[in-house]
Each structure stands twice: as structure tokens, then as C-alpha cells.
């Protein structure tokens, strides 16, 4: 113990009084001649260790010079720079992937939303917003209560329970029908629009940009047929007197053409939903 820490035991040789001497040895200064022989020997030993180079002390000189020639003589080129560049290159795809994916997702969402807005399949509030901002078709429930002009549909329809009989609102498993019956359109109807069709839809007439024709609630907005597909005997009511007047009587129009659509139902310059929107306010 004492041999381990002689400096902590001042009574022993080599106690704390030797610290200035030790500092002189550490700083490679000459020690006083009166110092003990072991300190003189120690000083000589350390001076030899810190002395000039011996053979073998310059090992690696060629490699160091080669590294210096290769790296230091080329400005801007260093191991750190190369390593950093390598690292950044390896991380760039990972770093760039996230913003790219986010941008693609936003673009896809935007395009999809726009397409959905113009297809008229968005929920009513969003569709209304899209209608006001980007000119998309209005939501179905704000369609005009104007006389429903019907056009023939080029696509045959399969019979649905609500299409048959007296057209009374019946519970339908069709979620579209249910939605239309429950939606705010019913409120519109109760507020003085009379028997507004549950879902009035304008479809573009052939050759027109915005020639929306108002169809029946149960009719999806089929594309307008060519004139030859129009069925004769279609009744069109100029006044909104109720759903029953907006469609052909069950007996007059054979199934699956229960609700022929007018090819030019919307007046020029106006669209039904615009009028409805105005009248609803």
C-alpha cells in the first residue's frame, strides 16, 4: 500500500516534498545535483525515451507520404469528405424517398379528389365545396326542383323494388336509394319545393358540355343516348308537380326504360343545381 502511493506518506522517502522535482522531470528540465540518485536515473531514462529517433521510429513514413500526396495535394478531397459524400449518397435515396412519396400521395389525392368531384361521387358537403371552387357538378341534393326533364337511358336497368309499382318510397336495400330518401333533399322538398325528386341528376346531353338533364332519383346519371335511342312516348312535365309527373307512367314505358331523359333538359346558360341553390337560400 505504501509502495503504491508513497506520495501520500510524507515520512517515507519520496513523499510530497519531491513534487517539484517530479514536475521538473516531467517537463524535461535539469534536476538539481543534490537530488537522490534514483531521480537522476529516472530523469535519464525519460530523456532517452523522449530523445531523437532511432531506427524503426520512422516506420510508416512511406505510407504517410503516399497518403499525403494522394489526399493533401488535391484540394477539396479528403477521406472525411469522401466518407461524408459516400454516406450522403447512401442516405440520399432514403432521405429523398419520403418527400417524394408525400408529393406523390398529395398529387394522387388531389387528382383523385378532382376526378371524384367531377364525377359527382363525393359526399354532399365536399361536392358542394368542389362545385364552388373548381366548378365541379353540384351535389345531387341541391339539384333544381325545376321541371324534371328526362332523357332516355342507353343502358337498360334492372328492376328494383322502388322502380315498380306506384313509386311509393319503400325501404330499399339500395344504399343509394336510402341515402337519397334520408338526405337533405327531403328537407328541401318539405320546404316548399313540392314533391321534389329524391335524387335529381343532370346528365350531359350528347354534344353538350354542361347539358345536364334532370333525371329521376332512381336513375343514375347515364350518358345521354343518341337520338335514335330515344324512346317515343316519353312524357315530360314542364311543371314540378311531383315525381309521378316526372316519369312515364308504369304502363306507358316498358321496363327497363321507365324514366326516359330529355337530351336537353337544362336551359341554356343555366344549370338546374344553380337555380336550386339560389332558391334554397
Amino acid at each position: 500500500m505504501h509502495g503504491e502511493m508513497p506520495g501520500f506518506f510524507p515520512g517515507r522517502p519520496g513523499g510530497e516534498h519531491d513534487e517539484p522535482l517530479l514536475d521538473m522531470i516531467l517537463e524535461r528540465r535539469p534536476i538539481p545535483p543534490g537530488a537522490s540518485p534514483e531521480f537522476h536515473g529516472l530523469a535519464r531514462m525519460l530523456a532517452a525515451v523522449a530523445g531523437p529517433a532511432e531506427p524503426g521510429d520512422l516506420a510508416g513514413q512511406d505510407a504517410a507520404h503516399a497518403a499525403f500526396t494522394r489526399l493533401a495535394s488535391r484540394p477539396g478531397t479528403s477521406h472525411a469528405a469522401l466518407r461524408s459524400a459516400r454516406r450522403s449518397l447512401s442516405e440520399r435515396p432514403a432521405r429523398g424517398r419520403l418527400p417524394l412519396a408525400a408529393a406523390l400521395a398529395v398529387a394522387a389525392a388531389g387528382l383523385g379528389s378532382t376526378a371524384a368531384a367531377f364525377a359527382g361521387v363525393l359526399p354532399s358537403p365536399i361536392q358542394h365545396f368542389a362545385h364552388e371552387t373548381i366548378g365541379a357538378p353540384p351535389p345531387p341534393h341541391v339539384a333544381s326542383p325545376r321541371p324534371l326533364t328526362v332523357a332516355s337511358s342507353p343502358m337498360p336497368r334492372h328492376p328494383r323494388p322502388s322502380d315498380t309499382g306506384s313509386r311509393q318510397p319503400v325501404a330499399s336495400p339500395d344504399p343509394v336509394s336510402d341515402k337519397t330518401h334520408r338526405g337533405p333533399l327531403s328537407a328541401h322538398g318539405r320546404k316548399g319545393h313540392g314533391a321534389v325528386p329524391v335524387r335529381a341528376t343532370c346528365v350531359p346531353a350528347l354534344g353538350e358540355d354542361r347539358g345536364w338533364a334532370v333525371g329521376d332519383t332512381q336513375n343514375p346519371p347515364w350518358p345521354s343516348p343518341v337520338p335514335s335511342q330515344l324512346k317515343p312516348g316519353v312524357t315530360q312535365s314542364p311543371t314540378p308537380s311531383g315525381p309521378s309527373q316526372n316519369r312515364a307512367s308504369p304502363g306507358s314505358l316498358p321496363f327497363p326504360w321507365p324514366l326516359p331523359l330529355a337530351t336537353k333538359g337544362c336551359p341554356a346558360g343555366t344549370t338546374p343545381y344553380q337555380e336550386t341553390h339560389a332558391s334554397g337560400r
Binding site: 525515451v49 510508416g60 504517410a64 497518403a67 499525403f68 489526399l71 479528403s78 469528405a81
Partner: peptide, 30 residues
């Protein structure tokens, strides 16, 4: 280099290799 090698001979078993790596880093950071 002499002092570096002597120091490294005390603290590592591969003084020459470590000295070479040290000089490379010194050169790159010079």
C-alpha cells in the same frame, strides 16, 4: 513520428497500424 510511435507502443498492441491511420486522419484534416 518517433514520439507518436513510442506513445502508441505503450497504449496499443498495433502501434504502426494505428500510427498510419493517425497520419491519414491528420493529412485529411490538415
Amino acid at each position: 513520428q518517433p514520439a507518436l510511435l513510442r506513445y502508441l507502443r505503450v497504449i496499443t498492441a498495433e502501434p504502426e497500424d494505428v500510427a498510419g491511420e493517425t497520419w491519414i486522419q491528420v493529412v485529411t484534416g490538415l
